[in-house]
Design a binder for these strands. Structure first.
Lengths: 213, 213
DNA sequence: GATTGTTTTAATGTATACAATTATACTCAA
DNA sequence: TTGAGTATAATTGTATACATTAAAACAATC
């Protein structure tokens, strides 16, 4: 039986609040106070404070000294995130191709299979999760800490909008086809192709979500 | 008399540790325990823990559950940071030019004057500070939260290497000249020129610090 | 009625006590 | 000497008490 390291309350609080803020459960402008969260979440102030400090570091909230204001992700933020990802994730794809191990390529192909499976079942929530896995795996495969640490939080912050986009079956099919192309480029070792395909992939997603801006 | 808001101990601890890690006072691999820091810094565990959570969020340390391992900034990290900045700071320069107010332009020109002053005095530490101010101001002028929040920490993390580079008077003079060109482009409203000049400026710094990689 | 000064309340900042966990040191037997 | 088992110490996780600050409510004066 595999042992799981129990995650601390502070981590759980952070994960929950981060997700809720990104998905808009706590809307922009809402004020979170430690005491309110103590009541809502049933833990003491210590883990809540630590979670709030981390959320602040990610700029999802802004501490006023008298409650923390939820910032969340605006459409302007989304545009910037996609513009940044367009450049940096292309870099990740390049390094991923260069540094990929056989296991990495196997893993990526497995993700493609899962993706096709969930598409055939038309399971939108799992499709979104597999989209996470696809992009995070490419980051990981790059073996570049700074690139990964820059991209993963940005990608997480688009969750709400990606979930929306996945509802559109035609758009989802387009996304999946691009993922396959990128996977093939990485697995065949063509780093420059992988770079340009991923850049184009993000640009297309940006245009779909925001129009050409 | 101007009133300063007293910064919390937690903030002070974060600032100090961040700076010391970036400058290498705590070398990569060193293990920081809360108790040791309590003794060294003379504050209780609460503010220290909050600072550690933030440092972990910035990936400057890695919490093992039994002490936090200092990660710091490696040369590989520096290369990635410069590659990322090359793209994103160019974007910032573009928006900065588009969104600049008269006050912004005045502020930027003032920074140029300070820069020339400290160069004439050959005050390296202040030159490095003014370099911070130059790049941070352009970020701020872009009025784009995500771009700023992505760039400012990355820029801070290069402090140690920039300080080194500023020691070289010929290199510093080159840097300063490029800053003037960029300032002129931004103030004249040529966004595309500002973008390409800033990209080139970062690339040159990268090449100086790391060679062509 | 507006304004000033005071009281109260709500919120955060900090220290510390206690619990739980994990590594270390130690003891004793084979 | 080595190894198992246990005690000890070190460290973090969590809750909570106390201090401090800032906002809100309120009262009193002009």
């Amino acid at each position: 039986m595999r042992e799981f390291r129990t995650t601390s309350l502070a981590d759980q609080v952070f994960d929950k609040l981060e997700n809720d803020i990104i998905l808009g459960v706590y809307p922009r402008g809402e004020v979170l106070t430690e005491l309110k969260l103590v009541e809502q979440l049933g833990v003491s102030r210590t883990p809540i404070r630590e979670a709030l400090r981390r959320l602040e570091q990610e700029r999802l909230i802004n501490d006023t000294g008298k409650g923390s204001v939820v910032l969340g992700i605006t459409e302007e933020d989304l545009l910037d995130i996609m513009n940044i990802r367009e450049h940096i994730e292309a870099l990740a794809a390049y390094y991923a191709t260069v540094n990929a191990t056989d296991d990495d390529r196997k893993e990526l192909r497995h993700i493609m299979d899962l993706q096709d499976f969930y598409y055939s079942k038309w399971d939108v929530e799992h499709l979104r999760q597999v989209d996470d896995a696809f992009h995070d795996t490419i980051c990981f495969m790059s073996r570049r800490a700074v690139i990964t640490d820059t991209l993963v939080p940005l990608h997480r912050k688009t969750r709400r909008y990606r979930r929306q986009a996945m509802q559109d079956k035609e758009r989802a099919s387009h996304t999946l086809a691009e993922h396959h192309e990128i996977c093939d480029a990485i697995c065949s070792g063509d780093a420059e192709l992988a770079r340009s395909l991923l850049s184009k992939h993000i640009e297309n997603a940006k245009i779909y979500m925001l129009g050409r801006k």
